[in-house]
């Protein structure tokens, strides 16, 4: 039976929305509005400078993507980056958290030290790393001192993206480490005791008790990592001063979107289409990750 709202219920709902209205207003103006507008842009050819025109072009912008060599390179670079960075930073975070949770002396001190990179602004971090990556910089000096070959970290297309990967793993792992650290407090001691009674050593305890117990958290960390790495922008932007060079090696999807939106004239619509495609890619990647981890977690 479908019952219409009574007068009283209407009034209550109305009052609720009235109180919500400032928040709703902000949400509409700054989040939902731009999303709708971006989708609108993605189907138009947009000329903003001079006489502003919006010309409906259907799915032309999406078709253009298939032919765009730079878009393919950008996507490949981004995927490569995600595939390497996400597992590395997750594992590193887990290992760091486990060592910090093992009850070592001075672990509070290390906790702070490990967390410092995350507190630093990524722009500043990138600039400092670019210094260290310099041909005559710290890293090459160190490599030379221990007899390893040196690299042109910033100028060599084969190396540049790896340089950004190293930097990013180093700077984001501690953030996820803190999340793991919190989750580790929750692992019941009884499980460890039971494992000990069964004769498990430290490594086995870690692998068979800690890791499975942390699964929902891992799922969360991987999803956040996926989203974060797919959106790589600032590091490669600073590294290549906005060009994505050398030889397109640090060109990421978001950097490409930026270039089409703000550098080339009249390609705002195409940039919006690329952004839309990226959102779908991230969505698909996230769904796949959830399917593979078979986790009915809340994250």
């Amino acid at each position: 039976m479908k019952r219409a709202f009574s007068k009283k219920e209407w009034r209550e709902a109305g009052a609720g929305y009235l109180l919500l209205s400032p928040t709703l207003f902000v949400l509409l103006l700054f989040i939902i509005g731009p999303i709708v507008f971006a989708i609108f842009l993605a189907f138009h050819k947009v000329q903003l400078l001079g006489t502003t025109t919006f010309q409906f072009v259907g799915i032309d912008n999406f078709q253009r993507m298939l032919e765009d060599t730079r878009a393919k390179i950008a996507l490949w670079n981004t995927v490569k980056y995600v595939i390497i960075v996400v597992p590395c930073q997750t594992m590193l975070a887990l290992v760091l958290a486990a060592t910090l949770n093992a009850g070592l002396k001075g672990q509070k001190f290390f906790r702070i030290v490990y967390f410092l990179p995350t507190l630093t602004s990524s722009t500043v971090l990138t600039l400092i790393f670019m210094w260290m990556y310099n041909q005559n910089g710290l890293i090459n000096h160190f490599l030379k001192a221990i007899g390893l070959p040196t690299y042109n970290w910033l100028g060599d297309p084969d190396i540049a993206l790896n340089a950004i990967m190293v930097m990013n793993i180093w700077s984001t792992a501690p953030f996820f480490m803190v999340i793991y650290l919190a989750a580790l407090q929750e692992v019941p001691d009884s499980l460890y005791e039971a494992a000990e009674l069964d004769g498990a050593n430290a490594l086995q305890k870690f692998w068979y008790v800690t890791v499975p117990y942390l699964r929902p958290v891992t799922s969360f960390v991987v999803i956040m990592g996926l989203i974060g790495t797919f959106q790589l922008f600032d590091q490669s932007y600073i590294f290549s001063s906005g060009s994505g060079g050398p030889n397109n090696s640090t060109l990421t999807v978001v950097l490409l979107i930026y270039q089409y939106a703000f550098k080339t004239l009249g390609t705002m619509g195409y940039a919006a289409a690329l952004a839309f495609a990226l959102a779908i890619i991230i969505l698909v990647a996230t769904l796949l990750q959830r399917k593979f981890s078979k986790e009915e977690s809340l994250y």
């Binding site: 100028g155 060599d156 297309p157 060009s243 060079g245 050398p246 030889n247 550098k263």
Partner: peptide, 17 residues
């Protein structure tokens, strides 16, 4: 020219290296 320059720079480096 900006588009032409961008593509030239990107590929010329790989030949230069």
């Amino acid at each position: 020219l900006p588009i032409i320059m961008n593509n030239f720079n990107n590929q010329f480096v790989s030949a230069f290296l």
